[in-house]
Simulated scan of single mutants.
Amino acid sequence: MTLTPTTAGANASPPPENSGEKEAERLPVHRLVSGATGRYIARIQVQYLADRPHAVSELARLRRGAGRRAHEVEDLWGIEGMDDLANLLAGRGEFSRSEDAEEALFLACTLWALHQQSGREQGMHQRNHHLGGAVRTLIRFQGAAGEDEEDSPLRKRLVRVGTAESLDSVAVRLREIVLLLRGAKVPLDYARLSGQLYRWQHRPDRAGVQREWGREFHLAAATAGKKGRPAADGEAIDRTLAADEEYGGYAAGE
């Protein structure tokens, strides 16, 4: 029997109420941080590239917070991404480490604003462009191909991020890298970075994040090697480290 729209509607099971909220409750917090960061940046980035005044103003505000702590800049209290994150973490209690989540989102968003400054050719937040791979791309962009990339000063900058002992130090060292990425127009996945920064703040998880940054750097070389030629911009990024679920399912422009 062919179901009419009325019959289909009568027999279809309605989606459970608050299904999105229940799904969020089951996700690990670092994925909620990644998702909130990705959705917020994606929305502003699309508008900024279209030269919308609101987005241009928002970027200028965010840049003022680059390298600072989340609640040190009163002008940035209550930014949309932070409000989204607060809603996602509601009811999670102290185990969510909400302050760490806020710091991670804030740092990632303000660094993106610095990275995107005055650039409207492309968005500097792009999925799958991991920190380690982006640094390797930058090394090749600066003409280090054929030299020992393992001894590059840029690689040492990445190592310094991993070996930092405070979030303030991480912020300063990431800011240095982001400024170099901006000059070379090499994008970065700020959603993934925010989730890593959340985990980095928890001492037992820190070594895992450090290993991820190292793997991203080394697997970028392996990815380029399979092609049998030096990687062009973006091609040195290892794609296998970024499954959709890592980002909470956001899409660019949502």
Rank of each mutant, 00 (worst) to 15 (best):
L105R: 06
E72C: 00
R52Q: 10
G228D: 09
L180Q: 14
L241Q: 03
L154M: 10
Y247R: 05
A8H: 09
P5W: 15
L62A: 08
V135N: 02
M124H: 07
D168P: 01
R39Y: 03
R206V: 14
A24Q: 09
W213T: 04
V172S: 13
G20N: 13
S57H: 04
T4Q: 10
P28L: 10
E235H: 07
R127F: 13
E25R: 08
A108L: 13
R215E: 05
E212N: 07
A231R: 01
T6C: 00
S34Y: 01
P15T: 15
P16A: 14
E212H: 13
E212V: 06
V172Y: 03
G234V: 15
D205N: 11
R182K: 12
A42Q: 00
R61K: 03
R239C: 01
H202V: 11
L49H: 06
A232L: 08
I237M: 06
I79N: 01
K227S: 07
T223N: 06
R39G: 09
R140N: 03
E72M: 03
T223V: 10
D233V: 15
A70C: 06
I237H: 04
G183Q: 05
A222Q: 11
G132Y: 08
W112Q: 09
E94I: 02
R211I: 13
N128D: 08
P14T: 15
Q116D: 11
E235R: 04
V29K: 02
D151H: 04
D75I: 02
G132L: 10
A86S: 10
L138K: 02
T240I: 05
L32F: 02
L3H: 05
L197A: 08
D168Y: 11
V73F: 00
K226W: 13
L32Q: 04
M82S: 14
L59M: 10
A231D: 01
G65M: 09
V172P: 00
K185I: 03
